[in-house]
Structure formats: structure tokens, C-alpha cells
């Protein structure tokens, strides 16, 4: 369950922001997870609920999924990542380190592995709300 390690990072980062913004209590944390990394929403949600520090007691974690857009640097083609076209081992490798996508995925138009992950790579903290 490597989602647990990511959940710890989310809590640590949210805690840091809460301190910077002098929030006494955190009520809502919005997290975006990219399809490429394929983070399991339920596991992440569970890990977050287990890791809640005291000032997060009443916090809700909203997890939204973002599609992954890839853009070829060689020919300019843009396409959506689709894990169904890949084997189980490959999907798992990309789950741990999304950048190895460059080992397994080629531009469907020109065959180049030199593409940009323009959106939906991994995990992002979108916003945090609370009371001062």
C-alpha cells in the first residue's frame, strides 16, 4: 500500500499550509489524483482518515480524478492515457513512478517516447479550508 506514504505527504503538506494560514482547524482538503499514477481512491481515503491529526478531526477529504493528457514533443500530437492498453506489470510500474511511462508508452502518431505529461500525472493538493 504505497498510497499510505502519499497520504502521509498530503497530511504533512496540508498541516504546513494550515500553520502558514494560521488555521486552528482544517475542515476540507481537496486532492486531485491523476489517472497516470492510478492511485486507489478508497485506499487513499482510508489512509487519510487514519492519519488525521487532532486539528483535522472534522476534516473531509475530497478526492477528484483527473484524466491524463500526453503531448508529443516530436510531432505535437495530443492524446489521453489509457491504461487498458497496457499490461498489468506496466500499469503497476507506472503506479509507483509515473515517469517510467516514457519506457512503455509511445506517441500513437509518430512513435516517439518524447512526450510531455501535460495533465494528470500524480497527486496534488488543490485547496484547503478551515477556521482561524
Amino acid at each position: 500500500m504505497h498510497e499510505w506514504a502519499l497520504a502521509e505527504a498530503v497530511i504533512a503538506a496540508a498541516q504546513q499550509i494550515a500553520e502558514e494560514e494560521k488555521l486552528k482547524e482544517v475542515r476540507e482538503v481537496t486532492i486531485k489524483v491523476g489517472e497516470l499514477q492510478g492511485v486507489e481512491k478508497d485506499i487513499l481515503q482510508f489512509a487519510l482518515s487514519q492519519l488525521k491529526p487532532a486539528n483535522f478531526k472534522n476534516a473531509n477529504f475530497h478526492i477528484t480524478r483527473a484524466k491524463t493528457t500526453l503531448k508529443c514533443r516530436a510531432c505535437g500530437n495530443t492524446w489521453l492515457f489509457n491504461e487498458k492498453k497496457l499490461g498489468k506489470d506496466t500499469v503497476e510500474a507506472i503506479h509507483f513512478v509515473p515517469e517510467v511511462a516514457h519506457t512503455y508508452i509511445k506517441c500513437p502518431k509518430c512513435g516517439s517516447p518524447d512526450f510531455e505529461i501535460t495533465e494528470g500525472r500524480g497527486i496534488w493538493l488543490e485547496s484547503i479550508k478551515g477556521v482561524r
Binding site: 510500474a93 507506472i94 509507483f96 509515473p98 515517469e99 516514457h102 519506457t103 517516447p113 518524447d114 500524480g122
Partner: peptide, 21 residues
Amino acid sequence: YYSHDQAAPLRGIDTSNALIE
């Protein structure tokens, strides 16, 4: 372990992201 010892052609931003991950 993740590239299965195949070529991993990475730009700077990708090496940075993989390192952080």
C-alpha cells in the same frame, strides 16, 4: 525496478519528478 532495465528517456522535469517520487 520500474523501467525493468529498459531505456527510460527522461527530460529534466521527468528526472526531477521521479526523484521526488
